[in-house]
């Protein structure tokens, strides 16, 4: 039962990763690409981490996975913010020479 639940979580996480990657490749500009990438991948990572945590069995491993998930999500969000900010600044500089 637990195995099936974990498999379902990991499987749906992978679907989110796939969607995020397709968005990254297909969307027209930096902002929409960032949107697709961070939203879908963060959800995907959460589902994946939940699935793996179910399979791991020990609470130490679950805590470690939760910590890794938190760090990855924080780092990804800040990186996304910085990329968007940099791009916005470039655009403004192009408008006002």
């Amino acid at each position: 039962m637990l195995d099936w639940l974990a498999a379902a979580l990991i499987g749906s996480g992978l679907v989110f990763f796939l969607a995020g990657t397709v968005g990254l490749l297909r969307f027209p500009d930096v902002y929409t690409r960032l949107h697709a990438l961070t939203k879908a991948d963060n959800t995907g990572l959460g589902l994946l981490a939940a699935g793996v945590a179910l399979l791991s069995g020990t609470w130490q491993a679950i805590l470690l996975i939760a910590l890794i998930w938190f760090l990855a999500v924080t780092a990804a969000s800040i990186a996304c913010h910085l990329v968007a900010r940099h791009h916005l600044r470039d655009e403004r500089e192009d408008d006002t020479p």
């Binding site: 760090l71 800040i78 913010h81 910085l82 900010r85």
Partner: peptide, 19 residues
């Protein structure tokens, strides 16, 4: 450098660097 003035940079530095 874009970003050193961003409000999120202190968060990044204070949370991540010690870890």
């Amino acid at each position: 450098d874009a970003g050193t003035d961003s409000p999120l940079i202190p968060v990044l530095v204070t949370v991540f660097v010690p870890l």
